[in-house]
Amino acid sequence: MALVLYNYDLDENCYKVRLALSMLTIEHEIVAVNAFPGKEQETPPFLAMNPMGTLPILKDGDLTLFGAEAILAYLSRSQDGSGRWLPADGAGFALSMQWLLFAAGDLSVATRARANALFGTPGDEAALRAGARRAIGAMEDAMTVNGFAGQDWFAGPAPTIADVALFPAFVLSRDFGVDHDEYPALRKWARRFRALPGFLTMPGIPDYH
């Protein structure tokens, strides 16, 4: 039975998984969830799969997973024969984990800043924006230093699921008033990312072609 992704197109965490499914060329089914305005993910059938009532959710046979980063880890370990999307060596694995956790943790303020800006969800706009700016600034520093060492990606010489998890917050940052002008290293990284086979956009990300 194919993998099933419970998805909402405008959710950047769902987008992370759609990106990985496409870039790793994994066959899957998509179930559209009426997240807005229906809040379907907060109804009992969905809470049974993810008690926190968030998307995405992935089902693979008997296995049910929630949280985009855990799903990315599962997809790369179970479906990526090359092993390069989640490296096995100590440093490569740990750096991937570091940035995956960063994406789910420190950088999640960007998701809240965007929801606040676009949908008026509650939050202190200035504080959210400052938090997002700080996290994106940390990414800029990391990629600047990586660039000095000739390293094009966050966790090593090749793209990993860490890059997938970090991409949406940066590329969508204009939605919450953080433009890309002051982040040259991230602009170059995002451009490289967009050129990867299987890349796809989500609503809000201009398709240049």
Partner: peptide
């Protein structure tokens, strides 16, 4: 307005 290396050929940035 920018470091030369910050603007790749075929790209733009605001300032």
């Amino acid at each position: 307005v920018a470091l030369s290396g910050s603007i790749d050929p075929g790209t733009s940035a605001g300032t």
